[in-house]
Measured scan of single mutants.
Amino acid sequence: YKPCFVCQDKSSGYHYGVSACEGCKGFFRRSIQKNMIYTCHRDKNCVINKVTRNRCQYCRLQKCFEVGMSKESVRND
């Protein structure tokens, strides 16, 4: 598999339409299922990588959408 499109960590396969790691897969699923609203405490362009991905949930979710993750493919079960 290609590296995670969101944070470049080791991917566990294709999730919600893109190559993603377990961490970003779970983060995206929880964010969508719980209708989470995050805020960025900087200027909405935080670097998201394996080391920084937990620092800003707003920018991490934005990057999930930017790389093509589909909220329609998240099931509500």
Rank of each mutant, 00 (worst) to 15 (best):
N54A: 13
N45L: 11
N76P: 14
T52Q: 12
H41Q: 12
C40S: 01
F65L: 11
S70M: 08
P3G: 11
I37R: 11
V18A: 13
K50D: 15
M36N: 11
V47K: 11
V74P: 09
V47M: 13
C7R: 01
N35F: 06
V47I: 08
F65S: 05
V51R: 07
C56V: 01
C59I: 03
G17Q: 05
K50Y: 14
A20K: 00
R55T: 15
K10D: 14
Q8W: 08
E66H: 07
C59R: 01
K34S: 14
S12W: 08
K63H: 10
G17T: 06
K10W: 10
E22C: 04
E66L: 10
I32W: 04
N76S: 14
M36R: 09
C4W: 00
K34Q: 15
C21E: 03
F65Q: 07
F27Q: 00
R55S: 15
Y16P: 08
K44F: 05
F5W: 05
V47C: 11
I32Q: 06
S19C: 08
G13K: 05
Y58R: 05
I48Q: 04
V51D: 15
K71T: 13
I32L: 09
Y16K: 05
N45D: 07
G68S: 03
K44D: 09
E66M: 13
D43T: 11
A20E: 02
V6K: 01
Y38L: 06
R75L: 14
K44Y: 05
C46K: 00
Y1V: 15
S70T: 13
M69S: 02
D9C: 03
V6E: 00
K44C: 08
S19W: 12
T39K: 13
K10V: 11
E72K: 06
V74H: 07
D9S: 02
K10P: 10
K34Y: 11
K44V: 04
M69W: 06
I48G: 03
K25S: 14
N35S: 12
R60C: 07
N54W: 08
S19A: 11
C21K: 00
G26E: 14
N49P: 04
R75D: 09
K2Y: 08
N49H: 04
R42V: 15
Y38T: 07
D43C: 04
S70D: 08
V67F: 09
R29E: 15
R53A: 15
V18C: 08
I37C: 06
R29K: 08
C21T: 00
S31V: 05
N49V: 03
K2E: 05
S31R: 03
F5K: 04
C40I: 02
S12Q: 09
E66S: 09
C56G: 01
K25E: 12
P3Y: 15
S11T: 06
V47H: 09
V18G: 06
Q57W: 14
N35W: 04
N45K: 12
H15Y: 12
S73A: 14
C4L: 01
F5I: 10
R55A: 15
T52D: 12
V51M: 15
N49I: 06
K25A: 15
S73T: 08
E72Y: 10
H15Q: 10
P3D: 15
G17W: 03
Q8G: 12
N54F: 13
N49M: 05
C40D: 01
K34C: 09
M36V: 13
C4Q: 00
C64I: 02
K34R: 07
T52C: 04
F28P: 00
V6F: 04
E72R: 07
Y58A: 14
I32N: 09
C59W: 01
Q62F: 12
C40V: 01
R53T: 11
C24N: 00
V18I: 11
Y38S: 04
N45W: 05
G68T: 02
Q62L: 10
Y58L: 03
C7V: 01
N49G: 06
G13C: 05
I37H: 07
M69E: 02
R29P: 01
N35P: 05
D77F: 07
M69I: 07
E66C: 07
Y14W: 13
G13Q: 03
K44Q: 15
R29S: 13
N35K: 15
R60M: 15
G17R: 05
R55E: 15
T39V: 12
R29L: 12
Y14M: 10
Y16G: 12
Y58G: 07
N54G: 11
K71G: 11
E66Q: 10
Y16S: 09
E66F: 10
K25D: 12
Y58M: 06
S19I: 13
Y58N: 03
V18Q: 10
S73K: 14
K25P: 01
R53W: 10
F27Y: 03
D43W: 07
K10A: 14
Y1Q: 07
